[in-house]
Design a protein around this nucleic acid. Structure first.
Length: 492
RNA sequence: CGGGGCGUAGCGUAGCCCGGUAUCGCGCCUGGUUUGGGACCAGGAGGUCGUCAGUUCGAAUCUGGCCGCCCCGACCA
């Protein structure tokens, strides 16, 4: 099965695609550019959703749901936003099919069922939501409005990649409205921090927080904050964004409120989102040549128990021990899978669960029954140890914590090694050639320089890091003065 | 939309140049032996060769149209 998995070094893209399919996460659909998320992959996404949803609720947000379709007139109300998405929209123009007289048994679009106004399938929901907020907001007493929705969106991308860029994807989008600019900015930054915490604490993936340059900014936003992660092939991945919208959408949709002084003013907005792209990030941040490596906090199965037996009788004796052990582990919050299939051999099961990234594997055979032991194997380091059966229930939860910490440290060490400070354009290009990864370099702040560097090297400004220290220098490209370093990389 | 490649069993492929009804591996099914790191042996099932037309006694193979997919670019808040 997984034996044919190419190694990461040979061809990272190929390896990624194979892994996604072999680990039972997802596959390409017959529908153009779309993806089928398989049950195992979806169960990981559900764990992400649960953790994120709790973090949103803990910061005062509530969930709601808005329509899939956006009338074209609403969609175009915020001009920059509409322009930004115009090239990748799916549009509903008709509402009925009929039998095709030319092709018996086939259907055709009924030309008589043309819509008065086209409906855009949401590529993002600012328009439909802000048109609704207009009705909900009259006074400062209605603010802040802190709403999130879990939904699917459609962006007609020309080239797609499983999880990283698909024509339809699942995400969450938060849309908030505030009475002051300061409060909206605070919200934007707060949600950026929520995303960063989620990435680091749950996904065990270190991220760099920053602000996008003008060229990479969300259309319609005044500022786009983002978290940027580094994948094992040295390419960057934008893992989440949080936008300060200013009053742009409020003005476009005429959302005004009466403040305490009784004066009308436009509300201040934010929007923020993460998507199933995080699944791609998770895979590319930790996996190895044996397959997926899941952080325990997001693993749908924490512990898999593989019995080793020749006869029914042996399996029965093992099952008695396993039932007790599994029950105790479940009592400690572990998700336990007892793989008692008699259709596969132990070696096959070991390989299969490694491919699926299960953090801890226990093996129990006749030898262990005699000695009162269990073989405990951890996925991240592939270390195996014999443990007393009586100790397992206490040790496994600790081991899960260690694995969570270890894979974070490993990813952090990798990223630290892969950040290069460079001061000349030659060095800049050399790093991209031989090492890749993140590059911290001075930039003169102009879109022209940014575009020229992108054109020549394919590297883009991932962000202007929030923790960038003031440091006078010269732009690597133009030689003009610069006050701080920005983060460059080739990106997904 | 440009440049390149490909369409043959559930998956991956050989055959195509040089025309004679399709090769191999994985997987699947049956039986047996196995079972502490992806088992082995034997037998078996499974195909409108993307599609339409043309050339031919005969087309997976040659010719043309169409459809679909992949890679590179363009695109990707």
């Amino acid at each position: 099965m997984g034996k044919e998995l190419p190694t990461r070094r040979e061809d990272y893209s190929l390896w990624y695609n194979e892994l996604v399919k072999k680990a039972d996460l997802a596959e390409h659909s017959d529908v153009r550019g779309c993806m089928v998320i398989k049950p195992y992959g979806f169960s990981i996404w559900e764990k992400m959703q649960q953790a994120l949803d709790k973090m949103f609720k803990d910061t005062g947000h509530v969930n709601a749901y808005f329509p899939l379709f956006v009338p074209k007139s609403l969609f175009e109300a915020e001009e920059k936003n509409a322009e930004g998405f115009a090239k990748e929209c799916a549009i509903v123009t008709h509402y009925r099919l009929k039998s095709d007289p030319q092709n018996p048994g086939k259907l055709m679009v009924d030309p008589d069922a043309k819509l008065e106004e086209e409906l855009v399938v949401r590529p993002t929901s600012e328009a439909i939501i802000w048109s609704t907020y207009k009705k909900w907001i009259q006074s400062y007493r209605d603010l802040p409005l802190l709403i999130n929705q879990w939904a699917n969106v459609v962006r007609w991308e020309m080239r797609t990649r499983l999880f990283l860029r698909t024509a339809e994807f699942l995400w969450q989008e938060g849309h908030t409205a505030h009475s002051t600019s300061e409060e909206a900015v605070r919200e934007t930054v707060q949600m950026l921090n929520v995303y960063a915490d989620f990435a680091e604490k749950f996904m065990a993936m270190p991220v760099i927080k920053g602000v996008k340059s003008e060229g990479e900014r969300f259309p319609g936003a005044l500022d786009t904050y983002c978290i940027e992660a580094l994948m094992q092939d040295g390419k960057a991945l934008q893992a989440g964004t949080s936008h300060f919208l200013g009053q742009n959408f409020a003005k476009a949709f005429d959302v005004k409120f009466a403040n305490k002084e009784g004066k009308l003013d436009y509300v201040w907005g934010t929007s923020w989102g993460v998507s199933t792209r995080l699944m791609g990030a998770l895979i590319m941040a930790h996996s190895d040549d044996e397959g997926l490596v899941l952080p325990p906090k997001l693993a749908p199965i924490h512990v898999v128990i593989v019995p080793i037996f020749r006869t029914e009788e042996e399996l029965t004796r093992i099952t008695i021990e396993v039932d007790t052990l599994a029950e105790t582990l479940r009592g400690k919050g572990c998700t336990v899978k007892f793989d008692n299939r008699d259709t596969q051999k132990p070696g096959f099961k070991f390989a299969e669960w490694e491919l699926k990234g299960v953090p801890v594997r226990l093996a129990i055979g006749p030898r262990d029954l005699e000695n009162g032991t269990v073989e405990v194997a951890r996925r991240d380091t592939k270390e195996k140890q014999l443990m007393k059966l009586s100790d397992v229930a206490a040790e496994v939860p600790k081991l899960l914590d260690q694995i969570q910490e270890n894979i974070y440290q490993r990813a952090l060490n990798f990223r630290t090694e892969m950040i290069s400070k460079v001061d000349t354009y030659e060095e800049f290009k050399r790093i991209l050639d031989v090492k890749t990864g993140f590059i911290l370099a001075h930039w003169d702040g102009t879109p022209e320089t940014e575009a020229a560097i992108k054109e020549e090297t394919k590297a883009t400004i991932r962000c202007i890091p929030l923790d960038a220290v003031d440091e006078p220098g010269m732009c690597v490209y133009s030689g003009k003065p610069s006050s701080k370093r920005v983060l460059f990389a080739r990106a997904y």
